[in-house]
């Protein structure tokens, strides 16, 4: 019996002279559909936090200390982790992917290697744009989204309005 990755591989398998290399790319594309779902599942709350406008302050924590009071968005911590993963993690993984793919194409002739080079290098840039339709989704679901976010925010019991009062320090 085939495992799930093998089944996905079979579905997207391209038969050709340099079969093995194409299998890597096709498996990647098949996997990308599933991982895009997972990535949006994990990352989309970051946009919703921004919509909710929930912020937190460390006032209670630093009241007895000399530390300054900070007011931050609740999403910062979560966003920093995911952005780090998307940034540094991706560069390392992408280099690994390039090395593996080019090793598989060792036997290919010069013309095939040039085509591969032209395709593989900008590949990531093209794929990255595939996530952009989410902007349309967010725009069309604005009303429903805000209604739900407000409902959750009320349950969260953070209905205190934050007033930002700062004394301006100016020499003049």
């Amino acid at each position: 019996m085939n495992t799930i990755p093998e089944t996905i591989k079979d579905i997207f398998l391209s038969r050709g002279t340099i079969d093995e290399g194409f299998t890597i790319i096709n498996t990647f594309l098949a996997g990308f559909v599933l991982t895009l779902f997972l990535a949006l599942f994990l990352y989309s709350p970051v946009w919703y936090f921004l919509n909710s406008g929930i912020v937190f302050s460390n006032k209670k924590k630093v009241d007895d200390f000399v530390d300054s009071i900070e007011i931050r968005s609740i999403r910062n911590w979560y966003r920093a982790i995911l952005r780090g993963y998307a940034g540094i993690g991706l560069v390392i993984t992408y280099l690994q992917f390039l090395v593996t793919t080019f090793n598989k194409f060792d036997d290919a002739d010069l013309a095939e290697q040039i085509i591969l080079l032209v395709f593989i290098i900008p590949f990531l840039i093209i794929v990255v744009f595939s996530g952009l339709p989410v902007i349309l989704f967010l725009e069309y679901t604005k009303e429903i989204r805000f209604k739900y976010i407000n409902k959750i925010t009320e349950k969260f019991k953070s209905s205190n309005k934050v007033n930002l009062i700062m004394d301006k320090i100016d020499k003049k």
């Binding site: 991982t35 991706l90 990255v128 595939s130 902007i135």
Partner: peptide
């Protein structure tokens, strides 16, 4: 509007990372 448009690329970058 969302100020940082780069944010919309991050899910795709995460997805690429996962699938690689």
């Amino acid at each position: 509007e969302y100020k940082n448009k780069y944010d919309f690329f991050i899910p795709s970058l995460i997805a690429v990372n996962f699938s690689l």
